Simulated scan of single mutants.
Amino acid sequence: MINGFDDIQKLGKDNMDYAMKSFGSFSKGMQSLAVEMADYSKKSFEDSAATMEKLMAAKSIDKAMEIQTDYVKSTYEGFVAQATKVGELYADLAKDAYKPFEGMVAKASK
């Protein structure tokens, strides 16, 4: 009977260890995402401000349209690249958060 209690206690400790490792991975991944989004937001703001300055200095409508077109194109390309990068970060986050539980699943399936 005592052996059964020890097994339950060890299982509870193992599960807590898995959960803490998973939480650590999740926390680290969320920090990476937050840093990435903050960097993207800062760059986006700086690009917008630089474009606005260029537009204010434009001497003709044609030049203003060219500046605006270049801005829209670069912004779209930057957004697509950022979305891809964030998608990869989320996928990595999910994989890293699940890793600690792989051992538990392997034990349970035996």
Rank of each mutant, 00 (worst) to 15 (best):
I67K: 06
A94R: 06
G103K: 14
S25V: 03
M1W: 03
E66Q: 14
D96P: 00
D96T: 01
Q31E: 09
L89K: 13
A38N: 09
E88K: 15
E36T: 08
K85R: 12
A57R: 05
K43Y: 03
A94H: 03
S27D: 09
G87Y: 11
F23G: 01
I2Q: 14
S44I: 01
M20I: 12
K21F: 08
M65A: 14
E53W: 05
M30F: 13
A106Y: 06
A108Q: 11
V105P: 00
K43H: 14
V72Q: 15
D96F: 00
M65L: 15
S25Y: 13
A64P: 05
E102F: 02
F101S: 01
D17Y: 06
Y98C: 03
K110I: 07
K42S: 11
P100K: 00
K85P: 01
S109Q: 14
A50Y: 07
D39Y: 02
F5V: 10
Y71W: 14
T51Y: 08
A83I: 00
G103A: 07
A19V: 06
M30S: 08
M104E: 03
T84W: 01
D47Y: 01
G103R: 10
M1C: 06
M1Y: 04
A19H: 01
E88N: 15
G29E: 03
D70F: 05
K73N: 14
E88H: 11
F79H: 03
K43R: 14
G103I: 02
K54V: 05
I2N: 13
I2A: 12
F5T: 07
S109I: 08
F101T: 01
Y18E: 06
I8A: 10
S44H: 07
K54F: 04
Y98T: 07
T69G: 07
D62I: 03
Y18T: 08
F45Y: 09
V35Q: 05
Y98M: 12
Q68G: 02
A49R: 15
I67D: 09
F45A: 06
S109D: 02
S60W: 08
M30D: 02
M20V: 07
A58E: 04
V35G: 00
L11I: 05
M20L: 12
N3Q: 12
D39T: 08
A38K: 14
D14Y: 01
D96Y: 00
F79R: 03
V80P: 00
K21S: 14
A19G: 02
A58N: 04
I2M: 10
Q82A: 10
I2C: 06
Q31R: 04
V35S: 07
A50T: 12
L89W: 04
D47L: 04
G87Q: 07
Y98W: 04
I67Y: 07
I2D: 10
D47W: 02
A57E: 11
A83N: 05
K85V: 02
K28N: 15
A38P: 00
E36R: 06
Q9A: 12
A91L: 01
N15A: 15
V72I: 15
D92R: 01
S32Y: 05
F101M: 00
K54Q: 15
Y98I: 03
G87M: 08
